[in-house]
Structures are given as C-alpha cells and as structure tokens.
C-alpha cells in the first residue's frame, strides 16, 4: 500500500467531518447547514441523471422533491408510519409520477420536455397550495414526527428493562442519517453509470438516432432515467419532511429546481461526483449571501442573480463543469483495468 499525501489528506478530512458532530464544540447552525448540503447533494445527484446522463433539461425537479416530502409528511401524520417504510413508499410515488409524466412527453424533443416539467412542478405547487383538505394549503403541514428508530418490540422480548427506542433530536443524528443517504445514492449512481443502463443513457445523450440503431429503445430508457431521478428526489423530500418536521408549498417553488440545476451545471453535467461539490459550494454561498445581502440593503432573493450568472458563465466557458477529471466511474471497473493491462502488455 502506498498512500500518497493527497489521499492521506482526503481521508483525514473525511474522518474529521465524520467525527465533528460528536464534539461538544460542534456548532448547531454549522451542523444544520451540513445536513442541508447533504439534502441538496442527493437532489443534485438525482437530477444529474436527466440532463447529465440523458441530455434532457428537467426544469421541474422540485415537483418530485415536493411529492416525496408531502407523501412522507402525510403518511407520518395520518398513519404514523415509520421512516423506514415511508422512504421506499415516497420513492415509489415519485417514480410513478415520473413515469406518468415521462411516458407521454419523452417521445418529443428536449425543448418540449423542459417546458412540460416546468409546468408540472408549477401544478404540484398549485395543488399543494389549493387542496387545503389534504395539505392545509399555505398554512403548511406542521407536527410531522422526527425520525424514530424503534426496536423496543425486540428488546423487551429479551429483557423487559431494555427499551431500544431512539427519537432523533437535534442535528447530530440527522447528520449521520443524511450521510448514509448521500452514500447510498452515491453508490447507486456509480453503479448505474457503469452499467448497461448507464451506457444506454449516454448513448441517447450523444446521438439518439445512433442509439436506437444499437437497439436501445429511446422512450423506455428515458422514462427509466426520469423515474429513477424522480424517485431519488422524492427520497430527499421524505428526509426533509422528517428532518424539518414542517412542510409548506413555498418550499417547492421553481427557484429550488433552478438552484439544483445550477449545482449540477457547476459540478458538471453527467458528473455525479461533481454534483456533490456543486451542492456544497452553492449552499455555502447561499448562506454567505444571506448574511451579506441584507447588509447591502438588498432582498435575500437577489442571491439568484449570482446563480443565474454562474449558469451562463459555466455553459460558456466550462460546459463540462469544474471537475471533468473525476467524471467516469468506469475507471475503477476491475474488468476494464484488467483489459487495459492486457492491451498495454501486448
């Protein structure tokens, strides 16, 4: 094993981030921002499938985020379901809406798709605002239970004294749960990218006519991509619901979609690792601007000026994002490493 300095630093940093919340000096606000970054990391990775892998602009990603959040919130409030049951249900609901929206519209050119997704997410917000009987409308949905880990049914069987029941209070447990969620989505993204599925998406992005001549059913694979992306968005929404314990339609306006898209563009279209960096940078930037802008007597919404500018400049000067070098997962694929060696030696 030779670990060079760069790797060593990387792991040291990772370890520091991992144990930071355990220290007593850990700052609540700072931890809160870190959890927020993790939510957006998941969203940015999930969104990247559509514009990055398939080459289609999705302007309504926040719609699925909202669907996941309200699915989780309502299921918690009305049925008291456990978080661990809700996450797959929210993902499923996101995927179903993805299929319902994608199947009829993904046959068309990308421009139409972009505008349809936009309209869809606006309709989601209108629905959440106006269907008061279900969502309480603009008042929002308060009183959602936090995440609970409950093994008391098991522990009391062994020893009546034991009560294995933990309710998530404060940012620390959410920090680790968020980290777990990011890691899980990261692994799924990496494995999808380096597979028959991922190659089919890339083929569609590069040249759809050539892709269909390779036997790829364009509609099927675009719908699969859109549905998986929607499901990931919904998972992030479910996490948000149980973390903030309050939802309102305002949290799912178009600006959110734009912000997530900006993270994807900054990190590089089709580069899901870059999306992690994009999410961290833009959330951090947002927090800084939230302090600076009022000092300049400007409304905090004007931070989107910076996001808009970032997107325009990135497309002009760095269309592959800032980190094109970390783009391909397949460099780690053992089959390809072996092949490279064989080709090199012959």
């Amino acid at each position: 094993m030779n670990i060079n300095l760069k790797d060593a630093l990387k792991y040291l940093l990772l370890a520091a981030v991992l144990i930071y919340p355990l220290f007593s000096f850990a700052n609540e606000y700072f931890l809160h921002v870190m959890v927020l970054i993790m939510v957006y990391m998941v969203l940015a990775m999930g969104l990247n499938i559509v514009p990055g892998f398939c080459g289609l602009l999705d302007l309504g990603y926040v719609g699925f985020y909202g669907i996941g959040a309200y699915t989780a919130g309502l299921l918690t409030i009305h049925f008291g379901l456990s978080f661990w049951v809700i996450v797959p249900l929210a993902a499923l609901n996101g995927a179903i809406w993805g299929i319902l929206l994608g199947a009829p519209t993904l046959r068309l050119t990308g421009d139409y798709f972009a505008i349809v997704t936009f309209g869809f997410s606006e309709l989601v917000v209108l629905f959440l605002t106006n269907e008061i009987w279900l969502t309480r409308g603009p008042l929002g949905l308060p009183g959602i239970d936090p995440v609970i880990i409950d093994f008391s049914w098991f522990s009391t069987l062994i020893n009546p004294e034991w009560d294995w029941y933990w309710e998530f209070i404060g940012p620390q447990p959410y920090f680790y749960l968020g980290l777990f969620m990011v890691a899980l989505v990261y692994v799924i993204m990496g494995r999808m990218e380096d597979s028959r599925l991922g190659r089919a998406w890339f083929a569609i992005r590069e040249d759809s006519i050539a892709a269909s001549s390779c036997g790829i059913n364009l509609l099927t694979y675009k719908v699969i991509g859109f549905a998986i992306s929607a499901a990931i968005g919904a998972v992030a929404g479910a996490f948000l619901a149980r973390w903030t314990m309050f939802l309102s339609p305002d949290m799912f306006k178009f600006w959110e979609s734009f912000l997530i898209l900006c993270m994807v563009v900054l990190g590089g279209l089709g580069n899901f690792k870059g999306s992690l960096v994009g999410a961290a940078i833009l959330i951090a930037l947002g927090e800084v601007l939230r302090i600076i802008l009022p000092a300049l007597n400007l409304p905090t919404e004007t931070r989107f000026l910076a996001y808009g500018l970032i997107m325009v400049l990135m497309m002009r000067f760095r269309p592959m994002g800032f980190f094109p070098s970390i783009a391909t997962q397949s460099q780690k694929n053992p089959i390809l490493i072996k092949l490279k060696k064989e080709l090199g030696s012959s």
Partner: peptide, 12 residues
Amino acid sequence: HCRTRSNFFGAV
C-alpha cells in the same frame, strides 16, 4: 445492448 439484458436491479 440489444444482445444483453441486465437491468437497473442488476446494475445496482
């Protein structure tokens, strides 16, 4: 692609 069959679940 057209002669192989692994899907999302296989990949993940």
